[in-house]
């Protein structure tokens, strides 16, 4: 799946990083707690979140996540989008709820990445 597919499946609007939407993505995670993203995420490329602050972008940066989708109709401020732009991230926004967005991406082939031991 590419980032463009994520955009189409989540009926999302691209807010920045349009030039990178042909990049491949294999795994995703969904959380509003950045602490949990930092704790449990490994090699994920897409982050779905309803949290709207600059730390979402920084968390993605630290974790090498390349695409962030703000869900539940959340729209980040311009300064947050600028931070993402500087880092070459794709940011999109969808009106879907977390459960629905995760389910759609999962059934279309994106995995969670981590295995429960």
């Amino acid at each position: 799946m590419t980032i463009a597919d994520v955009k189409r499946l989540l009926k999302a609007e691209i807010l920045c990083g349009e030039e990178y939407i042909s990049k491949d993505v294999h795994t995703a995670c969904g959380s509003d707690m950045m602490s949990d993203v930092l704790a449990f995420v490994k090699d994920q490329s897409v982050l779905l979140t309803g949290l709207c602050n600059p730390q979402v972008i920084r968390t993605a940066e630290m974790m090498d996540i390349i695409c962030i989708c703000f869900i539940r109709g959340k729209r980040p401020e311009e300064s947050i989008i600028e931070l993402a732009e500087e880092r070459g991230l794709v940011v999109m926004a969808s009106d879907m709820r977390m459960f629905e967005a995760c389910g759609i991406l999962y059934t279309n082939g994106l995995s969670g990445g981590a295995k429960v031991e």
């Binding site: 509003d32 707690m33 950045m34 602490s35 704790a39 602050n53």
Partner: peptide, 27 residues
């Protein structure tokens, strides 16, 4: 301990304070 935190509701609303900071730093 994972999950233990003294963070206020304000901090949790910012996406942190899940009690994973120190365990994560060690990990």
């Amino acid at each position: 301990q994972a999950g233990w935190s003294t963070a206020s509701e304000n901090i949790r609303a910012l996406g942190f304070g899940a009690g994973m900071g120190l365990p994560n730093m060690k990990k």
